[in-house]
C-alpha cells in the first residue's frame, strides 16, 4: 500500500478501485442501444440477433462488475447495500413502466423476452453505478 500523504484528520481517504462504475455504465449503454434498436423497429420485428448480442455484452459487463465488487477489500458494503436498495426501488418502477408499455403494445415472444432481460440489466446496472460511486467514498 502506498501512502502519499498523512493527515491529522483520519477520514476522507480515497482508494483506487477497479472500474466497477464504468463497467456497469457500459452495461447500461449496451442495453440502451439494444432498446433503441428494438424501439426503432416497432411495431415490426427487430433483428433479434443484434439485440441479443447487445444484451449478452451488457450482461457480461455487469457480471464482471459484480465479480469485481464481490472481491473488493476495504469497501463499505453496508453503504453500497443501503444506496443500492433505494436506487433499485426507483429503477424497478421505471423498468415496470417500460415493460408495461411494451406488453400494452402487443410485443410478445422472443422480442418481449429480450426486452425483459434488457430491463433486468438496466435495473441492476444503474443502482450498481450509483451505489458504487457513493460507497467508494464511504468511511465505514
Amino acid at each position: 500500500m502506498t501512502i502519499e500523504q498523512s493527515s491529522p484528520v483520519p477520514s476522507n481517504t480515497e482508494h483506487s478501485y477497479p472500474p466497477v462504475g464504468w463497467l456497469s455504465t457500459g452495461a447500461l449503454a449496451m442495453v440502451i442501444v439494444g432498446g433503441i434498436l428494438m424501439a426503432s423497429y416497432a411495431p415490426r420485428k427487430a433483428p433479434l440477433g443484434v439485440a441479443t448480442a447487445l444484451l449478452v455484452a451488457g450482461a457480461l459487463l455487469l457480471l464482471v462488475a459484480g465479480v469485481l465488487l464481490v472481491s473488493l477489500k476495504d469497501f463499505s458494503r453496508a453503504t453500497f447495500l443501503k444506496v443500492f436498495k433505494w436506487a433499485i426501488f426507483a429503477d424497478l418502477v421505471t423498468a415496470a413502466m417500460i415493460e408495461f408499455a411494451f406488453v400494452r403494445d402487443h410485443t410478445n415472444g422472443a422480442s418481449l423476452l429480450i426486452v425483459t432481460c434488457m430491463l433486468v440489466v438496466f435495473t441492476l446496472s444503474v443502482p450498481t453505478t450509483i451505489a458504487f460511486t457513493v460507497a467508494r467514498y464511504a468511511e465505514d
Binding site: 462504475g21 456497469s24 455504465t25 447500461l28 449503454a29 440502451i32 442501444v33 432498446g35 433503441i36 453503504t79 444506496v83 444503474v126 453505478t129 450509483i130 458504487f132 460511486t133 457513493v134 467514498y137 464511504a138
Partner: peptide
Amino acid sequence: GVMAVIALGILEPANIAVLF
C-alpha cells in the same frame, strides 16, 4: 439514449455521492 447514459451513469451517481 446518450442523455440517459450520461444522466444515469455519470450525473446522478455524482449528485448522490455529493449528498452523502
